[in-house]
């Protein structure tokens, strides 16, 4: 069963006054981030989007979350067009993912608070989630008192607190060092494998994609559309050891082959159109 259906999505951005971009030789003041983007996401799957910079992966997440609206096409969530942010989706950002004036506990609570869940209930759920991420001793800390890895753990706990059907993750581990990143990937997959949440995860790292995903969706250079959907045939539950298996390497190679030409296209594009890093 498909929980999300994106049909023929287009998304254009207007540049600031006076700014221009060259699209295939045509000068324009608009950038097309997505065009002809079609994707069906199965209920409960872990789908990872990979693609060159500027291919509109994050733009797609914003559209699914309802933070912004497509220029053309419709995204269905549970059969209904997405129009505004709802409690059905949780979102984990790469940066500014927590409110700096709230403690870890209070950050995890905030989705529930907006829904009007009573205080006791909120605190109970938030504590449970923090303990799941091994952060019970840090519930009274403010974000600036936590390491980057801890901040992202709190941020994921925050997004999970409302029990969303779909969890959107926009390069949540990109700013972390390599070791912390692997640890968080392991934790995420351990926690996710115990739920029936659908995850859409954006990353630049092929390793990360292969380790986490049921399917990897390779997005083309701008304007982004799905180039290829690759089934990752690694068994679950997955643990860190799987990274060094030959199966892992084989899957990794499949994704890389699909991605390679798009990355070089995007490189060309960036050289032509400096001044826009979308």
């Amino acid at each position: 069963m498909d929980i999300i259906v994106a049909e023929n999505i287009r998304k254009k951005f207007k540049l600031k006054n006076g700014q221009k971009v060259k699209n295939n030789g045509v000068v324009s003041d608009e950038v097309e981030a997505l065009s002809g983007f079609n994707l069906k996401i199965r209920k409960g799957e872990f789908l990872v989007l990979v693609g060159p910079s500027g291919s509109g992966k994050s733009v797609f997440l914003d559209l699914v979350s309802g933070l912004s609206a497509p220029t053309g096409g419709v995204i269905y969530l549970d059969g209904k067009p997405v129009q505004a942010p709802s409690a059905k989706t949780g979102y984990v950002f790469q940066q500014y993912a927590l409110f700096p004036w709230r403690t870890a506990l209070s950050n995890v609570e905030c989705g529930l608070e907006a829904k009007g869940v009573p205080k006791d209930e909120r605190v109970r759920i938030a504590r449970e989630l923090l303990s799941l991420f091994g952060l019970s001793d840090f519930e009274d800390r403010f974000p600036y008192q936590l390491s980057g890895g801890m901040q992202q753990r709190v941020s994921i706990a925050r997004a999970l607190a409302t029990k969303p059907e779909v969890l959107l993750m926009d390069e949540p581990f990109a700013a972390l060092d390599a070791q912390t990143r692997e640890i968080l990937q392991n934790e995420l997959i351990r926690i996710w494998e115990g739920t029936d949440t659908t995850v859409i995860f954006v990353t630049h790292s092929i390793d990360e994609a292969v380790f986490l995903a049921d399917r990897v969706a390779v997005v083309t250079a701008r304007p982004g559309r799905i180039k290829e959907l690759i089934e990752i045939d690694l068994p679950r539950p997955r643990t860190g050891e799987i990274r060094s298996s030959t199966e892992f390497a084989r899957n990794r190679h499949k994704v890389w082959l699909a991605l390679k030409s798009e990355v070089s296209k995007a490189e060309q594009y960036t050289k032509l159109a400096t001044g826009f890093a979308g």
């Binding site: 979350s65 942010p85 989706t89 979102y91 950002f93 004036w101 905030c110």
Partner: peptide
């Protein structure tokens, strides 16, 4: 107030008076 905090507020479902009291005023504090 940073656009990112308003987005964070939106995906958490803060609206109206709650948005002002719990996000905008604290961010502007």
């Amino acid at each position: 107030v940073r656009k990112e905090y308003l987005e964070l507020a939106a995906v958490n479902g803060f609206k109206g008076l709650k948005l002002i009291r719990r996000v905008i005023v604290p961010a502007a504090l």
